[in-house]
């Protein structure tokens, strides 16, 4: 879908200055565009079906996740670029088709204190399919806690890899 400013005969662009894509809790999406020439602004408002169409494709609108908050996006950007302020960064949990089940499992497992991840370990996590990450994270953290590790680094991941199916 494209939007044209009829006045200027110019395609409208996603706005740059603030969040261009704002999801609502009712499944609607507000996406703001502006004409680069006259700066006229419009907003596209989707119904839940239209939002679902996009999210079902598993893509990001204009580089922003539809469901995820910008905070999560910043985390993953930091993890990827290695610019996180602390050595540990949180892991982008991503959008997950099984989220309900997994949320249940995580709380059942009594996920007390979240384990810190080194940025290298977090980068590895980013390379996995998004829907696998929440389950993997809770499993790995449980493994690390049982073994008495205080953080998740690449060595812990490699060890777990060897324990669980070579």
């Amino acid at each position: 879908m494209k939007f044209l400013c009829v006045e200027c005969n110019e395609p409208m662009k996603l706005i740059k200055k603030e969040a261009a894509v704002v999801p609502s809790d009712k499944g609607s999406l507000t996406v703001r565009f502006e004409c680069p020439s006259c700066l006229y602004e419009i907003a596209m408002l989707t119904n839940p079906f239209e939002t679902q169409l996009v999210t079902s494709l598993g893509v990001r609108i204009g580089g922003q996740t539809v469901e995820g908050s910008t905070a999560k996006l910043e985390d993953s950007m930091q993890a990827l670029s290695g610019t996180a302020s602390a050595p540990q960064v949180s892991v982008n949990m991503g959008k997950c088709p099984f989220s309900k089940d997994i949320q249940k499992m995580i709380s059942a497992a009594g996920d007390a204190a979240a384990m810190p991840w080194t940025s290298q370990a977090a980068v590895r996590m980013e390379k996995m399919p998004e829907f696998v990450r929440p389950m993997a994270r809770s499993g790995i953290e449980k493994y690390a806690r049982d073994k008495g590790f205080s953080e998740i680094n690449e060595a812990v991941l490699d060890e777990a890899k060897n324990v669980f199916g070579m």
Partner: peptide, 14 residues
């Protein structure tokens, strides 16, 4: 089995 991230993506359990 656990799903573990390797250096090049999800590690396949064996």
């Amino acid at each position: 089995s656990l799903f573990i991230p390797g250096p090049a993506g999800l590690h396949v359990p064996k």
